[in-house]
């Protein structure tokens, strides 16, 4: 099973890449409002990046329901 710290580490890479900001450090509480550019469009790019990185697929409902990074990590860990 994936460790949360490892997931956070890999997520940070994806976030920094997509939002073009090398200083991003996500936590469980990080939500769309905390990151500049995290709108509904970027959200999909983000989900696709996560699906690719962790070789997993989210359901249609999950794509729409993730409220913060913590939920994202829960999902990744549960699937991993």
């Amino acid at each position: 099973m994936l460790k949360r710290e490892e997931v956070v580490d890999r997520l940070n890479h994806i976030f920094r890449d997509i939002f073009d900001d090398d200083d991003i450090c996500v936590t469980d509480n990080t939500a769309a409002a905390d990151i500049e550019g995290w709108d509904s469009l970027a959200h999909i790019t983000l989900i696709l990046g996560v699906e690719r990185e962790f070789r997993m697929k989210m359901t249609a409902a999950e794509v729409g329901s993730l409220k913060n990074v913590g939920q994202m990590i829960d999902l990744i860990v549960a699937r991993g």
Partner: peptide, 14 residues
């Protein structure tokens, strides 16, 4: 990718 049709009306797989 039907997930993204249902979720956000993307008609073609990314």
């Amino acid at each position: 990718d039907r997930r993204y049709w249902y979720h956000s009306k993307h008609a073609i797989n990314f």
